[in-house]
């Protein structure tokens, strides 16, 4: 039987025959449906994915007319991260003028709200300069990164150490305190950068420290929305479900721990988020067809539940793409086309 070349979630090449490929796609969508308690992809959608992964070209794309918004989070870091020595503003110009970006984000190398706060007066004039030489919508972006509020980096007792010592309620109290600090910082940084001219604020990698991280973000968004009704606020996620590091936190009477993208979006909308960036994690020991089918299943349900634009994360280890620094174009183009044409989302 003919073999089709694809990859595993760790980026290595594998070959699958027709039956194996179909089985991977079916198992991928079933896994998402089972975990998220949502519908799997239909037979037609699975057939469509099968055709994408058996198409002989290395690079494929969406049909004309199906193009979506393309944005880059942490854009000012990524050019320099690969060793290209550019200023942050030049990086933005590269993305805008050479890489076809539709939306961009200006950010600091620490990429977290807390360390930005004391240097905000240095960030504001840089952002203003960036705005003068770019034309596309420009966010200011950073992660809530609640971990930075814990000792030794912050004022709150370290919940990891408290949990390890069996001090569960103390660990939870500490996390609740961290939420208060983070909300205050997120509102301050968000307000000041918006008032400096940013077209919006992007709270990226939200939920990285679990339910506390997501709660802080929702609360900050709610305050910012009241303060600036026209402000564009994007929230990008860190993982496919909210880790229950506290376990008992809720927003609008909904327990946050364990929420999958189609439930996360409901709360994001209530808080006042303008654009939502869901995530599906890649399993590195499974194939890209398995991972792509799984990611599309989650995001499709999220789009279905959403009244606001959805810009799914597609990159290293998310969106069905391999966990490698530079995800290869063969699988990036297939997983992206699948994401756009099956889920009908608004951007990547």
């Amino acid at each position: 039987m003919k073999k089709y070349r694809t990859r595993k979630g760790d980026g290595s090449f594998i070959e699958l025959n027709e039956n194996e490929l179909k089985a991977e796609l079916e198992q991928g969508t079933s896994d998402a449906a089972d975990r998220g308690k949502i519908s799997p992809l239909s037979k037609e959608e699975l057939q469509y994915l099968f055709e994408l992964f058996t198409y002989p070209s290395k690079f494929i794309s969406v049909e004309m007319g199906n193009e979506v918004i393309l944005s880059y989070d942490a854009a000012t870091l990524k050019v320099r991260r690969v060793g290209v020595s550019t200023h942050r503003i030049q990086s933005l110009q590269v993305y805008e003028k050479l890489l076809g970006a539709d939306m961009l984000e200006f950010d600091h190398v620490d990429y977290s709200i807390k360390p930005v706060k004391p240097i905000i007066t240095f960030e504001q004039p840089e952002l203003e300069q960036a705005l003068l030489v770019t034309t596309l919508p420009l966010y200011y972006g950073a992660q809530p990164n609640l971990g930075l509020y814990n000792q030794p980096d912050g004022p709150c007792p370290n919940p990891g150490e408290l949990y390890a010592a069996g001090k569960i309620s103390e660990a939870q109290d500490s996390q609740e305190k961290a939420v208060e600090y983070a909300v205050s910082d997120m509102v301050q940084v968000g307000s000041e950068m918006y008032e400096s001219g940013a077209d919006g604020i992007n709270f990226d990698t939200t939920g990285a420290a679990g339910d506390t991280d997501f709660l802080a973000t929702l609360k900050a968004v709610e305050i910012l929305r009241k303060k600036f009704p026209d402000m564009c606020i994007e929230v990008g996620m860190a993982g496919e479900f909210i880790l229950g590091m506290h376990g008992g936190l809720s927003y609008d009477d909904v327990r946050l721990a364990g929420l999958y993208p189609h439930k996360q979006i409901e709360l994001a909308q209530k808080a006042g988020v303008s654009i939502f960036g869901p995530v599906c994690n890649t399993k590195t020991d499974r194939s890209i067809p398995w991972n792509s089918a799984r990611a599309v299943t989650y995001i499709k349900e999220c789009v279905k539940n959403s009244k606001i634009p959805i810009h799914a994360n597609m990159g290293m280890g998310v969106g069905g793409l391999p966990m490698v620094d530079h995800p290869p174009t063969d699988v990036v183009s297939r997983a992206s086309k699948a994401m756009v044409e099956i889920t009908r989302l608004d951007g990547l």
Partner: peptide, 12 residues
């Protein structure tokens, strides 16, 4: 790992 149980329960 499936998001159906959380850290405090796991620790307990």
């Amino acid at each position: 790992e499936r998001g159906e149980m959380f850290l405090p329960e796991l620790i307990r």
